[in-house]
Amino acid sequence: MTSISGQSQLNMATSPPQFFAFGPYKISEKEVFYSTSLSYAVVNLRPLVPGHILYSGFCVVCLAREVKRFVDLTADETSDLWLTAQKVGNKIEHYHEASSLTITIQDGPQAGQTVPHVHIHILPRKVGDFEKNDEIYDALDEKEAELKQKLDLDKERKDRSPEEMEQEAAEYQKLFL
C-alpha cells in the first residue's frame, strides 16, 4: 500500500496478515488498496448494483481511527480523509473511464449510516448509469439497509468473495505506484 508521500507502509509479502477496523468489522489488508497514517481506501464488499458500472468501482475511504461521527474528527483527520477521497476518486474515475463521481458521507443513523465509523462512499459515474441521476441515492439506501440486516458480516461475504475483492484491490494498488 502507498501513502500520500509514496512510502510503502506494509510489506504484505512478508508481514503477517493485518486487519483494519471498520466499525465492528475486520477488513483484510488485502482488500485495502491505499492508505495514509490517518485513513485508508478499501474495495466494497457489497457492490451497489451487480453487473452495473458501479459494481467494481464502488469503494470506501475510511478513517483509520474508529470515530462514529464526522463532527468528532480532528482537523488533521478531516483534511486527510478528504484529501484521500480526492486522490482515490481521481484514480478510480480514470481507471473506470467514468465522467463523474458521486462522493457521499452518511453521518449518523438517521442519515443512513449503518456502520458506526466515519467513511466516504466513492462511486464512479457515467452518462445514463441510472435512468434518473438521483436514483443513486435510493440504491445506496437499499444496499445500506441490506448491510444493516446482517448480524455477522464476516460470515456473510456472499456478494463477492475475498479473492474477488483482493484482486480488485491489487488492480487499484497499481494506480498509486
Rank of each mutant, 00 (worst) to 15 (best):
N11H: 14
P17R: 13
K91L: 10
S3E: 11
K174W: 11
R160Y: 10
A21R: 02
G108F: 00
V88E: 04
D159N: 13
K174N: 13
R160P: 01
K132G: 03
S5T: 11
L63V: 15
H117I: 03
Y34I: 10
T84I: 07
D72P: 01
A75H: 11
E135N: 09
G112L: 05
G57T: 12
V115C: 03
F19A: 11
F130E: 06
S3C: 12
N44Q: 14
D80A: 11
R46S: 05
P162K: 09
T2S: 14
L48E: 03
Q106V: 01
A13H: 08
L38M: 12
L63P: 04
Y40T: 07
G128Q: 07
V49G: 02
L38Y: 06
S28V: 08
E156C: 05
P17E: 15
E156K: 07
E97C: 09
H96E: 14
H119S: 00
E142V: 13
H121S: 03
P124L: 00
R65G: 03
L45C: 12
E93C: 12
D80Y: 03
I103V: 15
K155P: 00
Q167H: 15
F58K: 05
A21T: 01
G89L: 03
K87M: 10
A85K: 00
Q106P: 02
S161K: 11
F176N: 06
P109C: 11
K174G: 09
L101W: 07
M165V: 10
A145Y: 05
P124I: 05
N11T: 05
Y25S: 12
D138G: 10
K174P: 04
E171S: 12
A139Y: 10
H119E: 02
K30H: 14
R69G: 03
E164V: 07
E156P: 01
I53E: 06
I105D: 00
R46G: 08
A145I: 10
L45W: 08
F22D: 02
K158G: 15
E142T: 12
T102A: 12
T102C: 08
K30S: 15
E29Y: 10
T78S: 11
G128I: 01
Y25D: 15
I122C: 08
V49K: 08
Y137I: 09
T114E: 01
Y172L: 14
G108E: 00
I120Y: 00
E66W: 04
T78L: 09
V118W: 00
K174L: 08
T78M: 06
L81K: 07
E163D: 13
A41D: 07
Y25N: 12
V67M: 04
A170R: 10
L123K: 02
L177F: 07
L83T: 04
Q18D: 05
K68Y: 01
K68T: 08
Q149T: 13
I105S: 00
L101T: 01
E135V: 01
I122W: 03
P162E: 11
S56M: 07
E144W: 04
A13Y: 07
S15V: 04
C62P: 02
V127C: 03
A98Y: 02
K148G: 07
L38R: 08
F176M: 08
P50H: 14
V49N: 08
E97D: 13
D76L: 14
V127W: 09
I136E: 02
D80W: 04
I105T: 09
P116T: 10
